[in-house]
Nucleic acid binder design. Structure first.
Length: 598
RNA sequence: GGAGCGGUAGUUAAGUUGGUUAUAACGCCGGCCUGUCACGCCGGAGGCCGCGGGUUCAAGUCCCGUCCGCUCCGCCA
């Protein structure tokens, strides 16, 4: 049984052989992808992560190998030795190795496979739950293997690029002090300190700033982060960041460094050139024109604000919303005849989850008149002004949402993408990068007036806005930036505060008392009493980056062992309950209100 | 916390206004086949219709609940 690999060490992968290898004696290993028994000849497609090669068993060449081959099944793990032969008239153009085949004289079955619960191939869309339960089989599919190979290529290039630019890769703790604010933390009980908990780091933010203080002026880490928030297509509870921090730079220098890395990634991994510098847009412009803080620029449609024109338009629905402090947002869709009545009516249902009551629409006629249910009540001057602001002309359809600003923007942003997708206006082969700049430093709650950090409390305000910290916090803009790619936020960062006087003012604006600040971030504040450098950084979402670069549809497809939307791992069955003994050791009691679990 | 979609053979799906024995394809098992590559041909086995209640003479189908998966809103400094 043993000994095959000793006498027949693997010579090639299953994606390697070409016409130039004809007559060579080779040894391949892999899994049986498919099996075609002609009674006389037996063909198998042998698969490894590099590709597929056809292997032929001819009883005339080796009766023993042919006999063994007759018992093969899908997903058996085998090794074959034999000669590379030209396919002649039987070339298979669908295979990279299609010019040749291997005439095997020796077959070793390393291990047999039970019939897999689903076929190991790309095209079938098997139920996600089943795929996750048998993740190790799912991961055999070429599509997923390609994704993980791409992901590995990304981290290789990142390490090369950053090392070349004198960044140091430094690890920081996962088990950290709980810090309030921001994402919910996973907690880890401390056995040695009963009743006390670590938090799993939601990011290495404070540690990398401390490293700057310590003089490691260029740091990076490809690091796992943990956030106990609800999952999405592009959000997992544990995910990986390319975490970066630099001293003695401003935002443009940092962005230039990151742009260089992005260009290197696209060149090395995808063989595509990225034009630098990347486009920039302010946060305010993004909200105004795209309704979101992560515009997808593969689509040319833009929104406009027609609140002023609607204030006294005669159309009471809009007037009422405007009088109540809301806004009216408009999307101009060219070639509006392609939008059917049922599609337009359907938009109201589409808008509901956004807390929007309705989506109004008007077809613009020759001369600028509207064909719309509310056209009669809409004053001509107001209509002309809307047409002017929207740049509308005959044939266009205008879509309107009138709501509070946040809901109107979010909803119209979503409608823009929805309609653009329906009409095939999104250029799917493009990579549209964008730096989003100058976001507000604070988020001010409309109802309570409470001030919260929009990014994190160490983000520096723009120098010009410092004077507004006390007077008008909502107008203070931050030295922060997001990197957006095709409508996905793939990174975000900021220039940090390194002057304690400024930090104190920001804390004060946030309503954090000196005592609070000391209790929560005391070690950072103390560290920054000892000559911290000016510094700033960014964190890029490796998973999202990999998802886009690999052309994957879900974050799960670029993570080897992802979790379901409820955060469970269907393969290992995590999370599970634990024994009373384990809990006792940690001085933890599970609430009796909970039904007990395994 | 909320909304929507889905769950039928190993897999992917069909299953009509509730009505005989729940279909098909692929896969699987047995047989045949020396140029296939989605091989082909002949035969066969395979079902807790997610789970629990209810309505009904009768439930895969209708109602209620529940579990799981997916997508979204809220949430993600």
């Amino acid at each position: 049984m043993s000994g095959f690999l000793e006498t027949n060490p693997r010579t090639h992968t299953c994606g390697a052989l070409r016409a130039s290898d004809i007559d060579r004696r080779v040894v391949l290993t892999g899994w049986v992808q498919s099996y075609r028994d002609h009674g006389g000849l037996v063909f198998i497609d042998l698969r490894d992560r590099e590709g597929v090669t056809q292997v032929v068993f001819d009883p005339g060449l080796s009766a023993e190998a042919h006999r063994l081959a007759g018992e093969l099944c899908s997903e058996h793990c085998v090794g074959v030795a034999g000669k590379v032969v030209a396919r002649g008239a039987n070339v298979n153009d669908n295979l990279a190795t299609g010019a040749i085949e291997v005439w095997a004289d020796t077959l070793e079955v390393f291990s047999r496979a039970e019939t897999p619960p689903f076929p190991v191939e790309d095209k079938l869309d098997t139920n996600e739950a089943l795929r996750l339960k048998y993740r190790y089989l799912d991961l055999r599919r070429p599509r997923l293997q390609k994704n993980l190979i791409t992901r590995s290529a990304i981290t290789t290039t990142v390490r090369e690029y950053l090392s070349r630019h004198r960044f140091l890769e430094i690890e920081t703790p996962f088990m950290v002090k709980y810090t309030p604010g921001g994402a919910r933390n996973f907690l880890v009980p401390s056995r040695l300190n009963p009743g006390s908990f670590y938090a799993l780091a939601e990011s290495p933010q404070i540690f990398k700033q401390l490293l700057m203080g310590a003089g490691y002026d260029r740091y990076f880490q490809i690091v796992r982060c943990f956030r106990d928030e609800d999952l999405r297509l592009d959000r997992q509870p544990e995910f990986t960041q390319i975490d970066i921090e630099m001293s003695f730079i401003d935002e443009v220098q940092l962005q230039t460094t990151i742009e260089g890395m992005v260009a290197a990634l696209w060149r090395d991994v995808l063989g595509r050139e990225v034009t630098l510098p990347l486009r920039r847009m302010t946060h305010a412009e993004a909200l105004e024109r795209y309704g979101v803080d992560k515009p997808d620029l593969r689509l040319d449609l833009v929104l406009c604000d027609v609140t002023a024109a609607c204030r006294q338009s005669g159309f009471r629905v809009f007037e009422g919303v405007v009088a109540g402090g809301g806004i009216v947002k408009c999307l101009r869709v060219p070639e509006g005849e392609r939008l059917s009545r049922s599609m337009l009516d359907g938009l109201t249902d589409f808008a509901k989850p956004y807390g929007v009551k309705g989506v109004a629409f008007a077809r613009v006629q020759d001369g600028g008149a509207w064909q719309a249910p509310f056209a009669k009540s809409f004053k001509d001057e107001a209509r002309d002004e809307v047409n002017r602001v929207a740049g509308a002309g005959p044939g266009d359809v205008l879509l309107f949402v009138a709501e509070k600003a946040k809901a109107a923007n979010t909803c119209m942003g979503a409608i823009r993408l929805h309609v653009g997708d329906k009409l095939g206006l999104i250029r799917k082969d493009e990579f549209q990068f964008l730096w989003l700049t100058d976001p507000p430093l604070f988020e001010v709650d409309d109802d309570t007036g409470e001030v919260a950090a929009a990014h994190h409390p160490f983000t520096s305000p723009r120098a010009a806005d410092e004077a507004l910290l006390e007077r008008s916090p909502k107008d203070v803009l931050a030295r922060a930036y997001d990197l957006v790619l095709n409508g996905v936020e793939i990174g975000g960062g900021s220039i940090r505060i390194h002057r304690s006087e400024l930090q104190a003012r920001v804390f004060k604006a946030l309503g954090i008392s000196d005592d609070d600040a000391r209790a929560k971030f005391g070690f950072l504040l103390e560290a920054f009493r000892y000559g911290p450098p000016p510094h700033g950084g960014i964190a890029l979402g490796l998973d999202r980056l990999a998802m886009i670069m690999a052309g994957a549809e879900s974050l799960r497809d670029v993570i080897a062992f992802p979790k379901t939307q409820k955060g469970s791992d269907l393969m290992t069955d995590a999370p599970t309950g634990v024994s009373k003994k384990q809990l006792d050791e940690l001085y933890i009691q599970v609430s009796p209100a909970l039904p007990t679990r395994a």
